[in-house]
Amino acid sequence: MLELRGVTTAYGLLEAVKGVDISIRDGEIACLIGANGAGKSTTLLTIAGVLRPLRGTIALEGHRIDGLSADNIVQRGVSLVPEGRRIFPDLTVAENLSLGAYARRDRAAIANDLEWVFGLFPHLAERKGQKGGTLSGGEQQMLAIGRALMAHPRLLLLDEPSLGLAPRIVEQIFEILVEINRRGTTLFLVEQNAHLALTVAQTGYVMETGRIVLHDRADRLIKHPQVRSAYLGE
């Protein structure tokens, strides 16, 4: 579904992502784990079109998307839930969600998706008229995911959805992510919580200082000695 070939992204002269190859299959959950500053977020921002790769190609179902603008890439079915959630704090929950469907015109399908999102996150339905900034961290994460789903993505990119949340909320959110995947959306997950990510994912990538150093099935990576010592604290 998504193919990254030799993607290099730089901030000025500093290359944060160096020649990365990633291949995500249709319908799977893939994850990218690694330490802080390894280049995981940069990879996602590059796929989403916020950053332009310096070299390399990104193809979505065989069509190149590198070089397209972010709003264009959303319309092609790739949505990003960014790090820190970045909900619009002064807009209501309902407005945040409706902006998620900004590029769409299919009113009936949008209404369906809204109902589905409210079904996944009943909390959001209760707080429709509330400003996004007044929600708790967990609710904001739910709103950020719900907003991304309103674009009806085929590929959903998630940057650290567990960050700063209570374990109980994290568990709840990951259950919902699996549910979203079951409905046919491919997920690409960036996580510092390696154990959690490798448990829900089928494929895993390990990133260190801008390069992919390991790549395997998730159930094998979770047993890999290098992963166990560096990311699972064993």
Binding site: A48, G49, V50, S69, A70, D71, V74, Q75, S79, L80, P82, R86, I87, F88, L99, G100, Y102, A103, R104, R147, A148, A151
Partner: peptide
Amino acid sequence: MMASLVGI
């Protein structure tokens, strides 16, 4: 940035 990420 987030505005562009929702397709604006």
